[in-house]
Deep mutational scan, measured.
Amino acid sequence: CKPMSYEEKRQLSLDINKLPGEKLGRVVHIIQSREPSLKNSNPDEIEIDFETLKPSTLRELERYVTS
């Protein structure tokens, strides 16, 4: 899986911020299912740190927000 450039992460962040509330739950689910360290975090307060997410997680999020 190809790592994301800074610009791609920035765009992904903007795209996620534009999602309606009902789609954000899926974003949280994708992150929690792929990032063991965030599995028990509160979905309402999850802070997405794009620098610490795996490339595969970032690509999955990218696919979701652009679908």
Rank of each mutant, 00 (worst) to 15 (best):
E35I: 06
L61T: 07
R34Q: 09
S67G: 14
K2D: 11
L61C: 07
T52K: 15
E8N: 06
G21V: 14
L14K: 12
E22L: 03
E62D: 07
E8D: 05
R59C: 06
Y6A: 15
I31W: 01
E51K: 07
M4L: 12
R10H: 08
P36E: 13
I46G: 08
S5L: 01
S67C: 09
G25I: 09
G21A: 15
L14T: 09
N17L: 05
V28G: 07
Y6S: 14
L14S: 12
L58C: 10
P20A: 09
D44I: 08
L14W: 05
L24N: 03
E22S: 10
K39T: 11
E62G: 03
I46W: 08
S5T: 13
L14P: 00
L53E: 05
M4H: 02
L24G: 04
N17A: 09
E8H: 02
F50G: 04
E60I: 02
G25D: 12
R63I: 04
S33A: 10
P55M: 06
K23L: 15
M4I: 04
D44R: 12
P20E: 11
E45N: 10
I31G: 03
I16H: 03
P3C: 00
Y64D: 07
Q11E: 11
K54W: 02
Q32T: 06
E60P: 03
P43A: 13
K54F: 00
G21C: 09
L61F: 03
N40D: 14
L58P: 06
K23W: 13
K54I: 03
D44H: 10
K9V: 10
R10A: 07
G25R: 15
D15A: 15
I16P: 03
T66N: 14
R10Y: 05
I30G: 03
S56Q: 12
S37K: 14
Q11L: 04
R59P: 05
L38R: 09
S41F: 12
L53D: 05
S67T: 13
R34I: 03
E60H: 07
G25T: 14
E60M: 04
F50D: 08
R59E: 05
I31Y: 01
Q11W: 00
L19D: 03
P36D: 13
K39S: 11
E8S: 03
E60F: 04
S56R: 06
V65Q: 01
D15W: 11
R26H: 15
D49T: 07
I30D: 05
S67L: 08
L53V: 02
K18P: 03
T52Q: 13
N42Y: 03
Y6H: 14
Q32E: 08
Q32P: 00
P3G: 06
E7I: 04
E47F: 04
R26S: 08
E51N: 13
H29I: 00
V28A: 09
S41I: 12
I31T: 04
N40C: 10
R34E: 12
D49H: 07
R59F: 03
E8M: 03
Y64S: 06
E7C: 04
L58T: 08
R34N: 12
M4T: 01
H29V: 02
D49P: 07
R26N: 12
R10I: 07
R10P: 02
N40V: 12
K18N: 13
S41M: 15
K2C: 15
K23F: 15
L19P: 01
S13L: 04
E35V: 00
I31N: 02
S13M: 06
P20Y: 09
S37R: 12
Q32L: 07
E35F: 00
S56F: 03
L53C: 06
L24M: 14
G25L: 13
P36F: 01
R34V: 06
E51L: 02
P20G: 13
L19R: 01
R59V: 04
T52E: 13
R63E: 11
G25Y: 08
S41H: 13
K39H: 10
I46D: 11
G21P: 15
E62Y: 06
D15I: 14
I48A: 07
R34H: 14
S56L: 02
S5M: 00
Q11Y: 00
S37T: 13
R10M: 07
K2Y: 05
E7P: 04
T52R: 15
E47S: 11
T57I: 05
K2Q: 08
P36C: 08
C1Q: 10
E45L: 14
D15V: 11
K18Q: 08
S41C: 15
T57W: 01
K9I: 09
V28K: 15
K2G: 01
R34P: 00
Q32V: 03
D44C: 06
E22M: 09
R10D: 01
P3H: 03
K54L: 11
N42L: 12
R10C: 10
S13G: 09
D15M: 15
S67D: 13
P36A: 09
S56A: 09
I30P: 09
G25Q: 15
S37A: 13
D15C: 13
L14R: 12
T66D: 11
V27R: 02
K39G: 09
S56T: 11
V28D: 03
Q11S: 02
H29R: 14
S67V: 04
L58Y: 06
E8A: 04
S56H: 05
S56E: 12
E60A: 14
K23T: 13
E47K: 12
T66A: 14
L19G: 01
I31D: 00
K9P: 00
L38K: 08
M4V: 02
D15S: 13
E35P: 00
S41K: 14
V28C: 07
L14M: 14
D49Q: 02
E60V: 07
L58S: 06
D15F: 11
E47I: 08
E22G: 08
L19Q: 00
G25W: 08
N17W: 01
S13Y: 05
K39A: 15
T57G: 03
S56N: 12
L58I: 06
P20R: 12
V65K: 06
L61D: 08
D49V: 02
S41W: 15
I16M: 09
K54A: 12
L19K: 03
E60S: 08
I46F: 13
K39W: 06
M4Y: 01
K39V: 09
V27Q: 00
T57A: 01
L53N: 04
L24E: 01
L38F: 15
N17T: 06
S13C: 03
E60T: 04
K39R: 14
I48K: 09
S13R: 15
L58Q: 09
I30W: 07
L12V: 01
K39L: 09
R59I: 01
M4K: 03
Y6D: 15
R26M: 10
P36K: 07
Q32C: 07
I48Y: 04
D44T: 13
I46C: 13
V65Y: 05
K2H: 10
V27Y: 00
S13A: 11
E47H: 09
E47V: 12
S56G: 11
P55F: 03
I48M: 07
K23C: 15
E51A: 07
L19V: 03
S5P: 01
P43Q: 12
T57D: 02
N42H: 14
D15N: 15
K54T: 08
R26Y: 10
I46E: 13
R26L: 04
L14A: 13
V27T: 03
V28E: 08
